[in-house]
Amino acid sequence: MYRLVDIGGVEPRDLEDVDPSLLPIGLELQPDRMRPSIWHYERGAKNTFHRQAEQEELYVVLEGTLDVTVEREDERDVVRMTNHDVLVVPPESWRQLKAVEESRVLAVGAPNVADDAIVEDDTTTE
């Protein structure tokens, strides 16, 4: 059975200690194999520098501009993403999204597991 959701009708959630707000479309859609969310970033907001235990993540910029820092081994790249850009990051790569301007990002993690983010204590990028 398929499910259809109008994102305009999904109530946003503000999460404690997290700058971007969450539009929990995954709770509405209940997919089996992926974990979709839409994140709303105010200008200058950033998420925590993290990696995933299992999830490969796909990011689609729905609107706005973000700088995405991706670190793997000893290399760190900053990727500028704008409207309709798509990026896939493997679980083992550390990453952080920072809004250059107000932005909305569709993030899809797979497999669909409970939040498996791994955060280094007090680790952020500038």
Rank of each mutant, 00 (worst) to 15 (best):
M1G: 15
Y2R: 13
Y2A: 14
Y2T: 15
R3C: 08
L4C: 11
V5N: 02
D6Y: 13
I7S: 05
G8W: 08
G9E: 13
G9K: 15
V10C: 05
R13S: 14
D14W: 14
L15T: 04
L15E: 13
D17L: 12
D17F: 14
V18M: 09
D19R: 04
D19H: 14
P20C: 06
S21H: 13
S21P: 10
L22Q: 04
L22D: 03
L22V: 09
L22N: 07
L23H: 01
L23G: 05
G26K: 01
G26I: 06
G26F: 06
L27N: 11
E28R: 09
E28V: 07
L29S: 03
L29T: 06
L29A: 04
L29E: 01
L29K: 04
Q30S: 08
Q30A: 13
P31H: 05
D32Y: 06
D32N: 13
D32L: 09
R33Q: 15
R33M: 14
M34K: 05
M34W: 06
R35F: 08
P36I: 00
P36L: 00
W39K: 01
W39E: 03
H40E: 12
Y41R: 03
Y41S: 01
E42N: 11
E42R: 10
A45N: 13
T48D: 10
F49K: 14
H50A: 09
H50S: 07
R51N: 07
R51P: 00
Q52I: 04
A53D: 13
E54D: 13
E54N: 12
E54I: 09
Q55H: 03
E56C: 05
E56V: 12
E57N: 07
L58Y: 10
L58F: 09
L58D: 03
L58V: 14
Y59V: 01
Y59R: 02
V60P: 01
V61Q: 01
L62N: 04
E63Y: 10
G64Y: 00
G64K: 01
T65K: 11
T65M: 07
L66I: 08
L66T: 02
L66A: 05
L66G: 00
V68Q: 06
T69W: 13
V70M: 08
E71D: 14
E73F: 07
E73Q: 14
D74E: 15
D74N: 15
E75C: 09
R76A: 14
R76Q: 13
R76F: 04
M81Q: 04
T82R: 11
T82V: 15
N83V: 04
N83H: 10
V86T: 10
V86F: 08
L87M: 06
V88A: 12
V89G: 00
V89P: 02
V89N: 01
P90G: 11
P90L: 09
P90M: 07
E92A: 07
E92G: 03
R95N: 08
Q96K: 02
L97S: 02
L97R: 00
A99W: 00
A99C: 12
A99S: 07
A99V: 05
V100Q: 09
E102C: 03
V105A: 06
L106S: 00
L106F: 02
A110R: 01
N112K: 03
A114E: 15
D115F: 02
D116W: 01
I118Y: 12
I118C: 05
V119P: 04
V119K: 15
D121C: 05
D122P: 04
T124D: 13
E126H: 11
